[in-house]
Design a protein around this nucleic acid. Structure first.
Length: 423
DNA sequence: TCTGGGGTCCTAGGACCC
DNA sequence: TCTGGGGTCCTAGGACCC
C-alpha cells in the first residue's frame, strides 16, 4: 500500500525567528506581510489571543500593544534558508520529497512501511528539531489529500501527539466524520457554501458524495478530491519540480506613488528582478504583463487600475529588454491624478532558454548574456542592489516598509550570530 | 424558408493554495 | 497613515478553421 506523508512546520515564520532570538520564545509573536501590512504568521500564543490569519496590523494595533505581542517584518531570506535545512534533515527519512510550499513537503514513505511508521516519522521530527529547532507535525495517508487532512488533525487534536496516521480505515472514518468540510484541502469558501446547501458538512459526507454529483457541483477538481478522500490516488508525490508556467514580481508601495517617473522607477526594478528570476531558472519569457492600481480599500478616492501585456519577441530573460517592455506598458496606461499603491510585472510563456525559438535577426545576444551573468554574479556576491539599472531611480521612497526585520542570521557573514565567550 | 458537426486556440475570470 | 506576494488549474466563450 502507498504511504504518503505530509510534513508541516508549526507556525513556520515565527519558529524561524525564534531559532535565533530566545526573547521571542513563550511570548505572543506575529510576522507581518510585506509592507508590515497583515499578520501572516502567528505563534500559538498569538492565535489564542484571537489574531487571525490576514488581519491588517493597523486595525488590531491596540490589541497587539495591550497584550505585548511582538510584531516582526517578514524575513524571507531567513525562511528560505531555514527551509533548506529542514529538507536536509528530512532527506534521510524519505524516498521521494516533493516541496509543496516554504513550510511543507510531501514524502513517499512506502519503502518504510515494514517499520513502525509513527516511530519512523518521530525520528524525522527529532532530526528536524535538532538541526533547526523547528517543531513539525506529520500526517500519513494513502493519498495526498488524506495526508493533508491527517496533518491538520495531528495539529488540532493533542491526542495524536503530532503524528496522525490515517491508513487504518477505522481511524480514518472516525476522523473524517468529525472533520469540517471547509477545512479539507481544496475546499474554499465558494465550494463549502455549495456543499452546505446540500447538507454536506464533514469530510466524511464529502467522501460519500456521488462522483457525478461532485463533478456537477464543482469541476473535475472536486471529482478528484472525492476520489482521494476515498483512498484512490489522483496525484502522486512528484520529486521533480514541474516546469514553471509563469512568474511575477509585485509589491505594494510604502507610500503611494503619484508621478509617472517614480512609477517607472519601481516597475524598472521589478522587471530587473524578474529577469534575475528567469535567469536563475534558466528560462526565457514570451510575454510580460505590467500592472498598477490605486488603493482598493479606499472607496473615497478615485480608483484606477491598468494592465498592459507586451509580447517579447524574441523571447528573452534580458533584464534591459524586460525593463523597456514594462516601461512601454506603463507609459500607455498612465493617467494623471491617481495615486498608485501597488504595481508589478508578470512573465508568461516561459520556455527553457536553450529551447527558445531562434529568430532570423538576432543581434549580439552573447554580449548581453555575459553582461547579465556578470550583474547576477555581482549582486549575488555583494548584495541584491549593488548593481541596479539607473532607470529604477535612486530615491526609491516607494519601497515597502519593513520596520522590524530580523538580521540575515544565516546568509550574511556580517550578521551571523556571535557567541561571546570572553564574558 | 431552410442552415452541420466537428476541431483548435486564445483569453478572461473564478477558485483555490500557502 | 497604515490592508502581502506569490503560484496553479479549470471552464466558458469567442474567433476561426474545414
Amino acid at each position: 500500500m502507498t504511504a504518503i506523508g505530509l510534513i508541516d512546520c508549526n507556525n513556520y515564520y515565527v519558529s524561524c525567528e525564534r531559532a535565533f532570538d530566545a526573547s521571542l520564545v513563550g511570548v505572543p509573536v506575529i510576522v507581518a506581510s510585506n509592507n508590515d501590512g497583515c499578520a501572516i504568521a502567528r505563534s500559538q500564543e498569538a492565535k489564542v489571543l484571537g489574531v487571525k490569519m490576514g488581519d491588517p496590523v493597523h486595525l488590531i494595533r491596540d490589541r497587539l500593544t495591550r497584550h505585548g505581542v511582538r510584531v516582526l517584518s517578514s524575513n524571507y531570506t531567513l525562511y528560505g534558508d531555514m527551509q533548506r535545512r529542514v529538507l536536509a534533515a528530512v532527506d534521510a527519512f524519505a524516498s521521494e520529497i516533493e516541496i509543496y510550499s516554504i513550510d511543507e513537503c510531501f514524502v513517499d514513505l512506502t519503502p518504510f512501511e515494514t517499520r513502525d511508521l509513527t516511530a519512523h516519522v518521530n525520528g524525522m521530527r527529532d532530526q528536524v528539531r535538532r538541526w533547526t529547532t523547528i517543531p513539525t507535525c506529520v500526517g500519513i495517508g494513502p493519498t495526498k489529500t488524506l495526508a493533508k487532512l491527517a496533518n491538520a488533525a495531528a495539529k488540532k487534536n493533542p491526542l495524536f501527539d503530532g503524528v496522525a496516521d490515517l491508513r487504518d480505515p477505522v481511524i480514518r472514518a472516525f476522523v473524517l466524520d468529525r472533520f469540517p468540510v471547509g477545512d479539507v484541502w481544496g475546499i474554499g469558501r465558494a465550494t463549502a457554501a455549495k456543499l452546505a446547501a446540500l447538507g454536506v458538512a464533514t469530510a466524511g459526507q464529502l467522501r460519500d458524495l456521488q462522483m457525478k454529483q461532485a463533478r456537477g457541483l464543482g469541476t473535475v477538481v472536486l471529482e478528484r478530491l472525492v476520489a482521494e478522500l476515498q483512498g484512490v490516488a489522483a496525484a502522486a508525490v512528484e520529486a521533480v519540480e514541474p516546469q514553471r508556467r509563469g512568474m511575477a514580481v509585485t509589491r505594494s508601495f510604502g507610500t503611494p506613488v503619484n508621478d509617472l517617473d517614480t512609477l517607472m522607477g519601481a516597475v524598472s526594478q521589478y522587471a530587473m528582478r524578474g529577469g534575475e528570476k528567469l535567469r536563475s531558472h534558466g528560462l526565457v519569457a514570451g510575454q510580460l504583463t505590467v500592472f498598477f492600481h490605486t488603493n482598493k480599500h479606499r472607496r473615497d478616492l478615485p480608483q484606477y487600475q491598468a494592465s498592459r501585456r507586451i509580447s517579447l519577441y524574441p523571447m528573452t530573460a534580458d533584464s534591459f529588454e524586460l525593463i523597456a517592455a514594462a516601461r512601454r506598458g506603463v507609459e500607455t496606461a498612465w493617467r494623471d491624478g491617481h495615486a498608485s499603491t501597488k504595481a508589478g510585472i508578470m512573465l508568461d510563456d516561459l520556455v527553457a532558454a536553450e529551447l527558445r525559438p531562434r529568430t532570423l535577426f538576432e543581434g549580439d545576444g552573447d554580449r548581453r548574456e555575459r553582461l547579465m551573468t556578470a550583474i547576477d554574479a555581482v549582486n549575488g556576491r555583494y548584495g541584491k542592489f549593488t548593481m541596479v539599472p539607473g532607470s529604477q531611480g535612486f530615491k526609491r521612497d516607494w519601497r515597502a516598509r519593513a520596520d522590524s526585520m530580523s538580521p540575515a542570521w544565516t546568509t550574511r557573514l556580517a550578521e551571523v550570530p556571535v557567541i561571546n565567550a570572553s564574558r
